[in-house]
Design a protein around this nucleic acid. Structure first.
Lengths: 195, 195
DNA sequence: CTTGATACTGAACAAATGTTCAGTTACCTA
DNA sequence: TAGGTAACTGAACATTTGTTCAGTATCAAG
């Protein structure tokens, strides 16, 4: 068997470049980045990186970085499963939070939550909800809705009497719209930042 | 006063291109994208987009898309403040969840939570915590820690008796490490996806 | 050792790139 | 309605781009 190149180090270098420069380096830039002296060497390496799924070629043949390369966070297991070893860290593919959390960017918005009406659903004041417009809510989903003039965050529930909006807080009662109900959007995700 | 160009429509087109192609279009591509017939027109528009902060030039003079252009979600106000009008939607700048949530990508990991020991802090089973390694925790921060062999998610608290790990659940008691305490990292954020 | 497959070099090439120039067109305001 | 400023056209240019070629170096397996 002939010799094989070690991709890991190259990927690390490439990831670093793509993150800081926000673009795929040119062949000449990869020369110095990877320590080659021929652009043909770069071409060979790129072929491997495409095969491995770190880069891909668009319709025009241009190189595009994938989430596997670009993503911000390394996806790992469960808390109880322990903590990753340095070896595992290097191995783990990265993931983009944007890709993970947002299906339809054109119709998704962030809203800051105030009030504690959804606290038992794990949505606290100050949290940010990702709201997707356009689709009709199903019973049990959390929605941003305008009930009789006031905007609020509640569970959307359909029952025999019609539509009901349930809080996730025992101190509050459910609301049943009297005159108007406008669904602003469905809550697709929640994010919270500490500090 | 001479005429002025309407940037909004162009930005919309450009955002759409950058999102789908994951790169800034070339001048020739912008010709068709913006409906121009001269690359010099494109150059003029690019100058405006750079001034407006949607694009920027790196050290080598290459065009780079900013988060203002690329980001996945539109940042808006509070739930009680109402819902954005279509006009506001067009205006709002976009934001990247990765940039917003993650300071140090190299040392940040995602872990899926199981167990309900932090439920009163709004962290539910199935949620994903963003954990940052490397720094020493301060009292009151949530940490992923190995206490006497078991990995767990708790508040890190320093008191007179030493270090204590507090759950956010009245059904559980705090833990005080007997033999060993390993801090895996500090919880910098929580994300949750519905469906 | 020999064999063979792969990694890599060095040089050349056509195509595509961003920039620049002079000149024309469109529009707002006074 | 006239003037002026910015938007835009059309064409040309030097660089840079990714790709390709033939040939050498390296390494593992038999």
């Amino acid at each position: 068997m002939p010799r094989t190149v070690d991709l890991k180090e190259k990927i690390k270098e490439l990831r670093s470049f793509v993150r800081s420069e926000r673009r795929v380096p040119t062949y000449r830039e990869m020369l110095t980045l990877f320590g080659y002296r021929s652009t043909n060497s770069v071409a060979g390496l790129i072929r491997k990186l495409v095969e491995a799924g770190f880069l891909l070629r668009d319709a025009g043949g241009r190189l595009v970085a994938t989430d596997k390369l670009t993503g911000s966070v390394r996806m790992l297991g469960f808390v109880q499963a322990g903590f990753p070893s340095p070896a595992e860290e290097q191995e783990a593919d990265t993931l983009s939070l944007d890709e993970y959390m947002i299906r339809r960017p054109e119709s998704t918005f962030m809203l800051t939550v105030n009030g504690d009406s959804m606290i038992d659903a794990g949505i606290q004041p100050g949290d940010i909800v990702l709201v997707e417009k356009g689709e009709a809510p199903r019973s049990g989903q959390i929605v941003v809705a305008q009930v009789d003039g006031d905007w609020t965050l509640k569970y959307y529930v359909k029952d025999r009497a019609g539509v009901r909006l349930d809080p996730a807080n025992r101190n509050y009662r459910f609301i049943r719209p009297r005159q108007s109900l406008v669904i602003g959007g469905i809550v697709r995700g929640v994010i919270r930042r500490y500090e």
